[in-house]
Write a protein that binds this DNA or RNA. Structure first.
Length: 704
DNA sequence: ACTCCTCGAGTTCT
DNA sequence: CTCGAGGAGT
């Protein structure tokens, strides 16, 4: 291959991979299988190895230090999703977890459940890919499906083997935790604080100050910041450590139990947390939890709990997943850190759909290293349950998550003369009635279109990343454009261009610094770039209640074009009309969602605003999604473990070919695809006379 | 009628 | 990340 051919090929690959990433990332239908995607990456890597001079600035591998820094990090897909764990906080929770495992496996009481207990370090999960024993790339957890490519930074970690010690599988993904020791963190904190003060001194003295210094708030934050450095040399100077703890995808099985797998990790040259233990039965967990709890303060690093995993990998496979969490592992967290403070006020926020949510304003207090000022109170029931009153002393915690919550009120310290908090009867933003339907939890503003708070929230939703994705238009800018009466409806956004000079006159939008000067230009360009959008994004952006990403996708797939959808919705306002029946027949769209849509179209001002918008924006027709494919309209169920792909992956392929993927076999099922160790579903399918396919037959139907 | 499960909506802080 | 509600299946 000549240089010119290679350059062209690399350009083509970069384009394809970027496209595939985009399609996957935006939750649209992926345009290729994971295997095909990996093949493209491999091809790209091979070419780059052969023609190192031709490595592109936007190379999908982004492996070398020559990678450009400007736009942050490339996205990298995980071979197997990085999942989150269910959290428990007490022995009862663990008992319940074990019971559900036993129920699922139909395991008798006298057979012990063997677990591995591992300290849960408060750091950053990373995924590391090795090909033929050589470290290829690494990524952050990200949203679980894909993370950021931080290969260059990970290479600087002493604990990360650049090469595995043999024997190793041809290709393997390893999961690990990157963290900073408490002592290292304190030293780093002191260093950063000194640098910060030095910078302040220079700045006030009018000297050149240099780049801004960030002061980390906790070890986790410091580790995260260090790994996200654009310059790997900075990361190299940070005292980061790595423990390996799990497996992602692998070209071949490497162990029969999780414990053996940890041994393999050690053999390959990884550090594995030495505190991990095999627990011979479930009763050993509570003791382990307590021991670690006692050791916790003396450990070199922060841990926030213990992860318990079923040791037998075959059982893990059988147990599988619910939603985003495995059924074979839980995180047993130590009690959350708590703090007390004063509840100063209860504010009411108005959401996009008019939901009124109370929000606690408190005297700032440090909880687990973070200064907390606000907490959500969820709804008025929560407030009455707590009997929280303004002026009360309250206990707050940041539990397994990040979001602070009020746990309880310290009644002994309640000042005299307080009264129970009363929910508002009118919307604080527009004064319309605020009503709470019986049997519902949220109170809503009835102002709808006239409520300015809802209007602003709808606009923010409209431009948000998962909707129209207009870069440069965040909450603050929208609020300002709204207040200055330049933008009151979504369509107004697309009519901003004539006001460019007005915008440039605003403080912070004008011109002194270089970045400011381009702000308006960039914003207008970002807006222009969104005059064409996929139909599903357009529908989601409208912000109709109950029409989120998934339901928008269902509608887009079904009606295909904006015009067809619009016409159908207008007709569907008549109960019993063909259009209404058709709407209700869409899998996943029930009466509540249908009514929400027709209510929207019943309001003439909504239709006006919609048509106004449609004059500015062209929603692209949705892809056919295999409407005439072999699986079109069929309901498919997967069971057992498939050899060449995960069930999720197989499901995604089937959906792309127009199938509906269900969890359980029923009379409506058309095909059951069975893998190894299939359970009761296969028998049931046989009883119902449903076509049963093995993996090869399924692949043949899909043409792969 | 009851039980999963998925989806939508709202929220905090860096 | 959590909660509540809708939808689908038993």
């Amino acid at each position: 291959m000549t240089e010119a051919e290679a350059a062209a090929e690399l350009a083509r690959l970069a384009g394809l991979i970027a496209q595939a990433n985009l399609a996957y990332h935006q939750h649209d239908a992926p345009i290729m299988t994971d295997a095909a995607f990996d093949a493209l990456l491999a091809e790209n890597a091979a070419l780059e190895a052969e023609f190192p001079d031709l490595i592109r600035a936007d190379s999908p591998s982004r492996a070398g230090p020559g990678a450009p820094a400007a736009s942050g990090f490339a996205k990298l897909r995980h071979g197997v999703p990085m999942l989150s764990l269910d959290n428990i906080f007490a022995p009862e929770g663990f008992a319940e977890f074990c019971a559900s495992v036993r129920r699922f496996l139909r395991l008798a009481e006298d057979i012990p459940l063997v677990f591995v207990g591992e300290p849960k370090i408060d750091g950053l999960s990373v995924s590391l890919t090795y090909e033929d024993g050589v470290f290829q790339r690494g990524a952050t957890r990200g949203d679980g499906l894909e993370g950021e490519d931080i290969t260059a930074n990970l290479r600087t970690l002493d604990d990360l083997p650049q090469m595995l010690k043999p024997p190793y599988p041809a290709s393997i993904e390893i999961r690990g935790e990157v963290f900073m020791d408490k002592a290292d963190f304190l030293a780093f904190l002191a260093e950063q604080t000194a640098a910060f003060e030095e910078r302040e001194r220079r700045r006030t003295a009018g000297e050149k100050a240099g780049e801004a210094i960030r002061i980390p708030v906790n070890p986790r934050n410091a580790a995260a910041g260090s790994l996200r450095q654009l310059n790997p040399e900075v990361t190299a100077r940070r005292p980061l450590k790595l423990f390996a703890y799990a497996q992602g995808s692998s070209s071949e099985p490497v162990a029969a139990t999780h414990w053996d797998y940890l041994e393999r990790l050690r053999g390959w040259g990884f550090l594995v947390n030495p505190l991990s233990e095999v627990l011979p039965d479930e009763n050993a967990a509570a003791g382990f939890q307590q021991r670690l709890g006692e050791q916790r303060a003396g450990l070199a690093y922060d841990i926030d709990g213990v992860v318990y995993k079923i040791d037998d990998l075959a059982l893990q496979t059988r147990l599988g997943f619910v939603g985003r969490a495995p059924r074979w592992a839980v995180a047993w967290k130590f009690p959350a850190e708590r703090a007390t403070t004063i509840l100063q006020d209860i504010q009411i926020q108005v959401g996009r759909t008019g939901a009124l949510t109370p929000r606690a304003v408190m005297a700032p207090v440090n909880v687990g290293g973070v200064l907390v000022r606000h907490a959500t109170l969820h709804n008025e029931d929560e407030i009455s349950r707590l009997d929280a009153r303004i002026g009360d002393t309250v206990v707050i915690q940041r539990a397994g998550d990040v979001i602070p919550q009020i746990v309880e009120v310290v009644l002994e310290r309640r000042p005299p003369g307080t009264t129970p908090w009363q929910p508002p009867t009118v919307c604080p933003a527009c004064g319309s009635h605020a009503v709470r339907p019986p049997d519902e939890v949220v109170r809503r503003c009835t102002g709808g279109l006239i409520c300015p708070a809802q209007a602003v929230e709808r606009l923010i939703h409209f431009v948000s990343r998962r909707a129209m994705d207009i870069e440069g238009l965040g909450q603050e800018n929208i609020q300002r454009l709204y207040d200055e009466t330049l933008v009151h409806t979504p369509a107004d956004i697309f009519r901003l261009a004539p006001h460019a000079e007005t915008l440039r006159g605003w403080e912070g939008w004008g011109g002194k610094s270089k970045t400011e000067a381009k702000k308006v230009t960039n914003l207008l360009a970002a807006i222009e770039a969104r005059r064409r959008v996929p139909l599903e994004r357009f529908l989601f952006a409208l912000g109709i209640r109950r029409i989120g990403e998934q339901n928008a996708k269902l509608l887009a797939r079904h009606y295909r074009s904006f015009a067809a959808w619009r016409a159908a919705m207008l007709e569907a306002r008549v109960i019993g009309s063909d259009a209404r029946l058709e709407l209700g027949s869409i899998q996943g769209i029930g009466p509540a969602i249908a009514t929400e849509l027709t209510d929207f179209f019943d309001e003439p001002r909504n239709v006006e605003a919609l048509d106004d918008l449609a004059r500015e924006v062209t929603p692209d027709e949705a892809e056919t999604g295999g409407l005439d494919g072999p699986l079109a309209g069929k309901t498919v169920v997967f069971t057992g473990s498939l050899a060449n792909m995960s069930r999720d992956e197989a499901g995604a392929i089937a959906e792309r070919l127009g199938a509906k993927v269900a969890k359980a076999v029923s009379g409506k099922t058309d095909f059951l695809v069975v893998g190894a160790d299939a359970g009761s579903k296969a028998a049931k399918a046989a009883a119902l006379g449903i076509t049963v396919l093995d993996e090869d037959a399924f692949r043949a139907i899909c043409g792969i």
